[in-house]
């Protein structure tokens, strides 16, 4: 089971190339082995749902930015959390927005966690560690 889990991907939905690169680097500094799949906007993120339906491995966690081109993060969240099969996939909002209204909406839609991206890269690595520990490792059967 552990072998399968370590190949289960993490889906990272992020449009900003700098944030994308830094997130990838923060994870790689934690020597994370899970493959990371990337969606660059809301449409791309929703396209993954079709792939999972066809049998592609579903992600162990979805890291979702809110401010996305085409279809925004909250809409993506809503589609996933209403999907009969994939609503159990943990979704972590990883965003710059600390708007309380966004947080409220996200929780109403069933988000699993809401993390405001810190500007400080050291703290960002801490966040990556936290995500990995909680959603990557903890989900693995011991």
């Amino acid at each position: 089971m552990e072998a399968i889990n370590s190949f289960q991907p993490i889906l990272l939905v992020e449009d900003n190339p700098v944030d994308l690169d830094l997130t990838l680097r923060a994870f790689s500094s934690r020597k994370l082995t899970n493959p990371i799949e990337i969606a660059r906007d809301g449409e791309e993120a929703l396209a993954y749902i079709e792939k999972w339906e066809k049998g592609d491995p579903r992600p162990v966690v979805i890291l979702l930015d809110l401010k996305l081109p085409k279809i925004n993060g909250l809409e993506v969240l809503e589609v996933i959390k209403k999907h009969p099969e994939f609503k159990t996939i943990p979704v972590v909002i990883l965003t710059t927005s600390s708007e309380t209204s966004d947080m409220k909406t996200a929780y109403q839609l069933g988000v699993n966690s809401y993390i405001v991206k810190p500007v400080d890269f050291d703290k960002f690595i801490e966040v990556a560690t936290h995500i990995e520990l909680y959603w990557g490792v903890l989900n693995k059967p011991l």
């Binding site: 900003n16 700098v18 830094l22 965003t95 710059t96 708007e99 991206k117 500007v119 890269f121």
Partner: peptide, 14 residues
């Protein structure tokens, strides 16, 4: 809150 902080994260990260 969103857009001004993003470049800062890039500067600090890199």
């Amino acid at each position: 809150s969103h857009d001004l902080k993003s470049p800062l994260r890039g500067i600090d990260g890199y």
